[in-house]
């Protein structure tokens, strides 16, 4: 028995230039907020952006972006609707925002199904919001999405850092490219996260200070884009993620090594 879905995934992502996986091994560090805000920021820069929520059991990006009425169109596959200029795909279209209690095999099947039937078309960037952990979702993304590059979210919490280092170990072991690490929810002046990343040879992209107003912007993209959080994120991506131009479009460095960066500029 051969599952034909595996074969078609690359074709479905053929016109997607970059895939950015927003991940962290720890929950509650701001992955969904970062993924949603990044998608918004890039869309506002004029890029063709998609956002896929892979946190099947606890999806949040639709809540953050205030997406209620949108639904995909069926046309020889599933075409995600454009919301706030972002092609948006989430399991909530099919669960009606009810629970999806999945075990590992269910997760993998669901991911494969979505990747096999979703027609993204041409995208400059597909942002993927990940569930916490380094289990099924991370392993499947590494297995199925060869273009994936990881943006890792940490916080100054020792607990979060401890988990993040395990994610980095996995990514480095599997040679999955890491764009860099953002430290979110910073409160003091500790440089622990930055130092740890340097020690592990991972690019430290910058810090975002704890924004106690962020909760008020959930569900309202106009408010969200004006938050301190969004402004800090924008500074980080303009400084660190738009490093070279390719046909007038920004390019992400595939990872922190100069060799790979050079390659992507001339690709």
């Amino acid at each position: 028995m051969y599952d034909p879905r595996v074969q078609v995934i690359d074709e479905r992502l053929a016109e997607v230039r970059d895939i950015l996986i927003v991940s962290s091994a720890k929950g509650g560090v701001g992955k969904s907020l970062t993924a949603s805000t990044l998608a918004l920021l890039f869309a506002r820069q004029g890029l063709k952006v998609g956002l896929l929520d892979l946190d099947f059991t606890s999806p949040a990006t639709h809540v953050i972006l205030g997406i209620k009425e949108a639904h995909p169109v069926e046309e020889r596959g599933i075409i995600p609707p454009k919301v706030h200029e972002i092609k948006y795909m989430s399991l909530v279209y099919y669960t009606g925002d009810h629970m999806a209690p999945f075990r590992g095999a269910d997760f993998s099947n669901c991911l494969m199904e979505i990747l096999a039937v979703t027609k993204w078309g041409e995208l400059d960037l597909l942002v993927i919001d990940m569930p916490p952990g380094i289990g099924d979702a991370t392993l499947d993304v590494i297995r199925f999405m060869k273009k994936a590059r990881f943006l890792v979210i940490a916080t100054p919490s020792i607990l979060a850092l401890s988990a993040v280092l395990k994610l980095i170990e996995l990514l480095q072991t599997t040679r999955a490219p890491i764009v860099g690490v953002i430290e979110n929810m910073k409160t003091g002046k500790s440089k622990t996260v930055e130092e740890q990343m340097r020690r592990h040879g991972v690019t430290f992209l910058g810090s975002i200070y704890y924004d106690n107003e962020i909760e008020k912007s959930i569900g309202d993209v106009h408010k969200l884009i004006k938050t301190r959080f969004a402004k800090s994120l924008k500074r980080i991506i303009s400084r660190k993620l738009f490093r070279c131009e390719d046909r007038g479009k920004p390019m992400f460095p595939p990872n922190s090594t100069a060799e790979h960066f050079h390659h992507s500029c001339h690709h």
């Binding site: 034909p4 078609v8 069926e74 020889r76 039937v117």
Partner: peptide, 18 residues
């Protein structure tokens, strides 16, 4: 109809197997 997407997957997979 997403049957088309599945049929595309089948054709793609059969081509590879062949």
């Amino acid at each position: 109809m997403h049957e088309w997407a599945l049929a595309e997957a089948v054709v793609s997979a059969v081509s590879r197997i062949a």
